[in-house]
Design a binder for these strands. Structure first.
Lengths: 219, 219
DNA sequence: TCAAAAGTGTTCACTGTACACCCATGT
DNA sequence: ACATGGGTGTACAGTGAACACTTTTGA
């Protein structure tokens, strides 16, 4: 007699971060359907039988934001009993990062209203999504220290001050300008474009990433 | 019309490491049933509908080894198509650590023969278990550098040389004795028992962990 | 007495941190 | 001319790495 394993609904949840309005923000969806109707939730959805986990995360993100080819890494798998009131659901959570300007969601999608929210404070969230975002944030902060993950927030061209802003916003504390520049240039991941950003003050050298899609462990 | 999500078989796979015979070893099971009959595989099994993921991992480990209350952390979730020939299976992998002497498996369990194997080289493995072990090893090596995870390999009492042996085995390179001792004592996680291990040579001070179950991030 | 593991400090190089002023532009 | 952000170098402290000999025991 063959053993029949239980089958469980599997979802992905994507914590998509960006830097906007000088703070760290996360993409949320106001749910148009029960459960948790009208409550904010992470983008994501049920994994199809013939769909890889990360493919599902990328597909859902694309459907809900139009974004494609962005940085995405698996975070953790949440499988507590009762985390979904309907039935047992195991959710594989991902962290994604994108430059601010790549998305101005005010759209009403099939799934509901999509919008950026500051992570501090967060609105009330569906399921265990507050916990998921908290862990994603921890991961992001930790990775600043030993990887080049923060560069995934950068647009194609940027100034060194833009880079420093990102670090200061995520870590919540100011950094010394000279030390920061010395350090970031020593990573050898940036190169000058030769152009300058002209604004109201002294023009700033524009840089680009040597390998825009590469996230490197730095120690 | 309500959407019916697909249901997927979910398993856990546990990579249980120990230090034995001067090398890093992993617990494997020789499968008694198809698929991959007679091939070595990781312990683990299907998650029940009313069972939390980590509970399943601990239960399976207990059933197959008798071990209880050991260090266990989630590693990664593997969900590639075709990783199980029978049907779509998503597997949540865990890393577990135990002192060598806590387990002498030569037992025939219901699921098959259980045995320790060196990780270098590994035998042929079922499913994508070679990949899982490789990632687990990477995680272990990485965590040596910024956490006290290695102490989970230690028996209740141990000498400083025992501790150094563990680090040298996992990292595959010798360390300076004076520097190692200075460093490990500065962590302030060890305390002298007052007893000595007497053997063939000069007796060595025995230490114990101040918090045996605590794995701390050290930087 | 010999073999083998236990135990113990100092020096040096490097890395990370603190710190202040001039420059280029727009208004 | 002034307000604003852009850009630059040096000095010091703390951390990590190299390095050799004495002690204690059992055989």
């Amino acid at each position: 007699m063959a053993y029949e394993p239980p089958r469980i609904a599997v979802t992905t949840d994507i914590v998509l971060f960006t830097i906007r309005e000088g703070v760290l923000q996360v993409l949320l969806l106001r749910r148009a359907i029960p459960p948790f109707i009208n409550v904010w939730a992470l983008p994501g959805g049920f994994v199809e039988l013939h769909e890889a986990l990360e493919d599902n995360a990328r597909r859902k993100l694309h459907e809900e934001t139009g974004l494609d080819n962005i940085y995405l890494e698996q975070l953790y798998t949440f499988g507590a009993l009762g985390r979904d009131p309907r039935e047992r659901v195991v959710s594989v959570a991902y962290v994604a990062l994108t430059p601010a300007d790549d998305l101005h969601p005010e759209a009403e999608t099939r799934a509901g209203t999509v919008a950026w929210h500051r992570v501090d404070p967060l609105p009330a969230l569906a399921f265990d999504h507050a916990e998921i975002i908290a862990m994603a944030r921890q991961r992001l902060v930790a990775k600043l220290d030993y990887s080049t993950i923060a560069f995934q927030f950068l647009p194609p061209q940027f100034t060194l001050s833009d880079v420093q802003d990102i670090y200061e916003i995520i870590q919540g504390q100011p950094m010394d300008k000279r030390n920061f520049r010395k350090w970031v240039l020593a990573l050898d991941d940036l190169e000058e474009t030769g152009d300058y950003r002209t604004g109201h003050h002294r023009p700033a050298m524009l840089y680009r990433l040597k390998n825009p899609d590469l996230v490197r462990i730095t120690k």
